[in-house]
Design a protein around this nucleic acid. Structure first.
Lengths: 328, 328
DNA sequence: ATGAAAGCGCTAACAA
DNA sequence: TTGTTAGCGCTTTCAT
């Protein structure tokens, strides 16, 4: 691989001049510019970003650490992030923690070691990863889930209101024994959506509420629904706190021939791209995912520009999309 | 941020010793090791990977450039790649080209500048990106689609056989006017799946085959199906060459109340996570996605170890998953 | 407007 | 076993 000195020799100038040309300095003689660019082309020279980053003590890469690459919620959010990043001159590298705190810690460590310009993270709940980030000087924006013990820029949806909306919708449709399937304790989305569900059932004594906690994945939703179906106080409707668990629940119901929405009403948090293609179509609480990504990216751009500014929390609205699975 | 010299001073040793300890050299006095590790902890020292990479002239990052992060095919493949990469000591950074050659070129340029240890790419068709990669010394593995004009390690599925299988399945079910919706000319998957479709209809004169080309996205599939429905020689079945287009086609059929499989048979290439949840459930030609990712990653590990070895092409089998949409 | 020279933080010869 | 030293490729004062 040719270096900047090879180009300098070829063009008969100093390395400093090559650097100036390549970085668009205005103080270079046009004739020099031409000579340098010719040499660059002839040698197939490509600047070594590693050396540049070391010298400048900064990079133009963002790490976006998400907890499940198979979740459509994140894919839409990533698009929003990318669009803003690209405009601001950053490239986005995606890291998939797979809801695995150990993986998350590995990726956080890599992002810090690689001196990434910023990190956007949907925490899988790792306190260690959060601590590393908070102790580092690297700008961080939390999305979807709050960073454990962290005071950083954050973009979330109104989980409580959204969950309340979904549950109240089931009540209004005439369901009476409404259960909730939610995620792990300590993950903010799981806890807040559970709170929204609880708030929607104000008259109910604590023990009347039927709550199952599992992970945020499809198999978890499947198992949770199975246990609800075979329990002695079987519910007549379920509010499920994320999309993948909703898919699992739906698959369980389909396999056992349970009639939805007749025997069992269903509302899921998070939109699903094909919610309108299944029969019955799925009622969901939708988030403005693309907008969420854009907002997070904008906060990160601002944070990089002004590291000392006060941390902001942006709460975006969720929206009920009523379909067949909750209408009997 | 503390540097290796801060640690050295704190521990009362030289920077070289700190480096040795951190890199697990066996030739260091245990007492030194302890002192160094204490200093590291006290200072919260974190090695600067940029400096290390510059010095070593290599990194431990792989760039995985995929053409659509929203496509379940890729998410499953990425999991396979990640699992092998992690075991081999590499981290995976994901780059989403969004079927956009310009974006792809940007990410390829970044991967080369950042001196990534290797690249796994599903080409969006950019000849320029392919050229940059082939001219560079960086190890490359192509997945899903062949790299334009490239002789590199490649992992693909048997597209021709899979498409033939899907089309023959429709023939066997009694459909007679079978159309094909495929992707852009020049993208190998689009062309090879079209060939498989063509091979399955040997008796048909050229003009009897009904072929629509569009992009590989949902809207493309929707539009293509709409045009087929309103054409004078409306088909009674369609073979669709990828999953996202199949979803679009399905949505179009649902909106217009066309009975599937009665009025219109449907087979899609690529599995879809919820193919069995829609009504009618979707017949698909499934690829071993996770295995494909693992294989690509293994090839990349080998290629990094032995840069001069001959390029290999691995062809994995596709598998028909018959469901309701093709059974009348 | 251009060049010489220092140095970003680390690793790896080489010397001791 | 440990330290000294050079240098990875680039940018950026500083001097001219």
């Amino acid at each position: 691989m040719p270096t900047i000195y090879d180009v300098a020799r070829e063009a008969g100038v100093s390395a400093a001049t090559v650097s100036r040309v390549l970085n668009g300095a205005q103080t270079v003689d046009p004739a020099m510019v031409a000579r340098v660019l010719t040499a660059v082309r002839e040698l197939g020279y490509r600047p070594n970003a590693v050396a540049r980053n070391l010298r400048r003590s900064r990079t133009t890469l963002w790490a976006v650490i998400i907890s499940d690459i198979g979740n459509p919620f994140f894919t839409a959010t990533v698009r929003g992030i990318e669009d803003v990043a690209q405009q601001a001159g950053y490239s986005v590298v995606l890291c998939n923690s797979d809801e695995n705190p150990a993986k998350e810690e590995t990726y956080v460590a890599a992002a810090l070691s690689e001196q990434m310009a910023g990190v956007i993270i949907a925490s899988s709940g790792s306190v260690k990863a959060a601590k590393s980030l908070l102790e580092s000087p690297i700008p961080v924006v939390a999305i979807d889930r709050e960073l454990p013990r962290g005071v950083v820029d954050t973009v979330v949806v109104d989980n409580v209101a959204g969950a309340r909306m979904g549950t109240e919708h089931l009540l209004a449709a005439g369901y009476r024994r409404i259960a909730c399937i939610t995620g792990p304790k300590g993950v903010s989305t799981a806890d807040l959506r559970l709170r929204g569900y609880t708030e929607a059932l104000p008259g109910q004594p604590e023990q009347e509420r039927i709550v199952v906690r599992t992970d945020f994945r499809e198999q978890g939703g499947y198992d949770a629904m199975a246990s609800l179906l075979s329990s002695s106080d079987r519910p007549d409707a379920v509010f499920v706190a994320n999309n993948l668990m909703t898919v699992g629940a739906l698959r369980c119901l389909a396999e056992r021939g349970v009639d939805v929405p007749g025997e069992m009403g269903l509302v899921g948090f998070d939109e699903i791209p094909w919610a309108d293609l299944v029969r019955p179509s799925l009622t969901t609480v939708a988030q403005p995912t693309y907008e969420l990504g854009r907002m997070a990216a904008r906060l990160l751009v601002d944070r990089i520009a002004t590291p000392s500014a006060k941390a902001a929390t942006v709460v975006l609205p969720a929206e009920l999309r009523p379909r067949q699975s909750s209408t009997r």
